[in-house]
Structure formats: C-alpha cells, structure tokens
Amino acid sequence: MAIRFSELMLKIELIYDKPPLPGWQDPRRTIHVHSLYWVHEGRGFFTLDGREFPVGPGSLLYLRPGRELWMMSDTDNPLHMTMILFQAAAVTRHNGAWQVRELAALEMAEVQALRGADREDCEGRIKALRTAWAPGDDGREAAACNLLLRLIRSVSRRQTARGGQERPASGAGPGSSGPPPWEAAKRYLDTHYYADIRLSLVAEDCGISLRQLRRRFLEELGTSPKEYLDKVRHEHALRLLEHTDEPLKRIASACGYYDEFHFSKAFKKIAGMSPSAYRSATPKGEWRQERGEE
C-alpha cells in the first residue's frame, strides 16, 4: 500500500564512508534494516539475485530488509561509496489514535544510475546528510533523518516524473550572525571526528580561546571538549562495530584514533570492555535492545 511522505518516519542506524581500498569484496552484512548505497567514485561490480552488474559514479542502490548483496571493488579504480542503514515506518492517525506500522520496503527502484544534474543533486544531498548526522546527538540525528527523507522523496519523484527536475537543496549554512564560537567548535568536532584534531587550533579557528572553549563546553554540555570528542568518536565506533565486520584497524582510522591500540584503550575506558569483546557480545539485530532503545 502506498504511503504519503508526510507519514514516513525514518531512524538512521549508521552512515559510513567505505574507504576506496583496491579490490575489496564484501557482502551486505546487516540485512535487518533498509540500506542505501551511493557510489561517489571508482568502479566495481555488485551481485544481486545472482545477477552481476557494474557500478560507478552516480550508482544508487536501495535494498529492503532481508535482501542479500555481494560487492566487489575494482583493483585499479577502487570504489568510494557511502552506506546508509536506516529503519522506516508509517505513522498514521485512525479514529483518533496514532498507529505506527513498520515498513517492509519503500517504493524505490533497487538500482539507479544517475547522470548530470540528477547525480550532482544526489551527491550534494548525500554529503549534507553525512555532515549532519551525529549519533548520540538527538537534534543532529533528527536533522539527518529529515535530510534522508528529502533524499528519498527526491529520488522517488524522479522515478515517476523524469521530465521534471527538483532543484538541489540549498546549503543550510549558518545565518549572517553565525553560531556562537563554542557551538561552531562543537559542530566541527561532530563532523571532523575522524581527523587528527588539535583543540587549540579548533578554538583559534572559531574565534575563542581554548580556556573559554572549555568553560563554555562545561556550561552548555557538562563536559570538556576533549571528553565530548571522545564521546563522538565512541558513538561512531559503536555503530561500526554493531553494523559492520570492518577490521578494528580500519574502524580506528575511520573514527580518528591514531592506531588500533589507542582505539582499544579509549573504547575500554568508556565501554568497560574491548572493541572485540563488545562486538562478540552484541549480535547484529539485537544491539538496540541491549542499549535500551525502543
């Protein structure tokens, strides 16, 4: 049964940039959620229902829960892609009562090859979505879910009306006055957690002293900038451990840790167990209950 986009509710579980490593091969491991795969660059082959097909820049795949996929990257021109895992439900009101119905599938084509303005639009939306999402931050997660909804609506409209083109979403940059310096620093940590960050330089770039930045973080967030950055990195590491089988070395690099040793040490400090132990104790599909989420 078709649903209105105004009735669609989404919950993002993971957004992950797959690094462009030569010749990587991987199955779709987390199959209990909906998935989008967007290819930024490179070449490769995907296998779906026993059918192998090439993918490249502008390839967009949507898979409903339960679908299996095998992915293989080219050796000379490796795939760089973004993977989005999410849950979807329809929220309707009937006889004065709200009803929530989990969706088994969305009305989207499984495989699309976007070109020209369509590709540029989707690329911009994916990048904005990737920047907005910050696991553990309710406001940022809600904003990212809204961007994902707009992306799905835009792609779905193109399927039914190739003649009409929706204008790319304008950048949601700060207003003329801009955010307070401490908030600008927080946004930077949210979106650049994977980088080698020096808090003194972040403070300088945001027009605030490091001492003032620490004071404002403690006042507004109840934690120091360093502790906040550790929390952001930890949240991203949790999602990768829960939803992928990426090696710990790769997760460490993706989350901004110097190496696997420092990653394991920082993770154990917060979680009370090593990354390997956490992954073993959290079967895929059960992590939400174990972390107390509905």
Results as ranks from 00 to 15, higher is better:
215 R>H: 06
70 W>H: 06
24 W>H: 05
11 K>T: 10
40 H>K: 11
154 S>G: 14
167 R>I: 10
134 A>Q: 06
135 P>H: 03
165 Q>A: 12
264 S>Y: 00
67 R>F: 02
39 V>N: 03
248 L>R: 02
188 Y>W: 13
148 L>T: 03
260 E>K: 12
102 E>V: 15
244 T>G: 08
31 I>P: 00
93 R>W: 04
252 A>L: 09
51 R>N: 09
238 L>M: 12
262 H>I: 10
28 R>H: 14
85 L>S: 10
129 L>N: 06
42 G>N: 03
95 N>R: 15
260 E>W: 02
23 G>T: 04
127 K>H: 11
229 L>M: 08
243 H>P: 03
85 L>K: 07
153 R>T: 10
51 R>W: 04
134 A>Y: 02
237 A>Q: 05
99 Q>T: 09
255 C>T: 15
43 R>V: 07
245 D>W: 06
273 M>D: 05
222 G>F: 10
242 E>M: 09
74 D>R: 05
264 S>H: 00
255 C>H: 02
291 R>K: 15
237 A>L: 07
218 L>Y: 01
191 T>F: 03
202 V>L: 04
213 L>S: 03
199 L>F: 04
272 G>I: 11
171 G>Y: 11
292 G>P: 01
134 A>D: 03
173 G>P: 01
217 F>E: 05
9 M>L: 10
197 I>P: 01
37 Y>I: 11
22 P>G: 10
248 L>I: 12
170 S>C: 09
35 S>V: 06
167 R>H: 11
44 G>Q: 05
257 Y>E: 02
139 G>F: 05
62 Y>N: 08
49 D>L: 12
150 R>L: 13
288 R>Q: 13
163 G>Y: 11
204 E>V: 00
230 D>Y: 05
86 F>N: 01
116 G>Q: 14
38 W>Q: 04
17 D>V: 05
192 H>D: 03
105 A>C: 06
219 E>Y: 09
230 D>M: 06
14 L>N: 02
149 L>Q: 07
250 R>D: 10
14 L>P: 01
123 E>T: 15
166 E>C: 01
181 P>I: 09
22 P>F: 08
18 K>R: 14
215 R>L: 13
117 A>E: 15
256 G>R: 02
95 N>I: 08
72 M>N: 04
71 M>H: 06
64 R>N: 12
264 S>M: 02
256 G>Q: 06
187 R>M: 12
111 V>R: 13
47 T>R: 14
176 S>F: 12
37 Y>R: 06
132 A>P: 04
72 M>H: 04
18 K>I: 12
139 G>T: 07
21 L>G: 02
250 R>G: 00
18 K>Q: 14
174 P>E: 11
270 I>R: 15
123 E>G: 00
195 A>W: 12
70 W>F: 12
248 L>T: 05
195 A>S: 14
47 T>S: 15
68 E>T: 13
156 S>C: 07
221 L>E: 15
277 A>I: 09
46 F>Q: 00
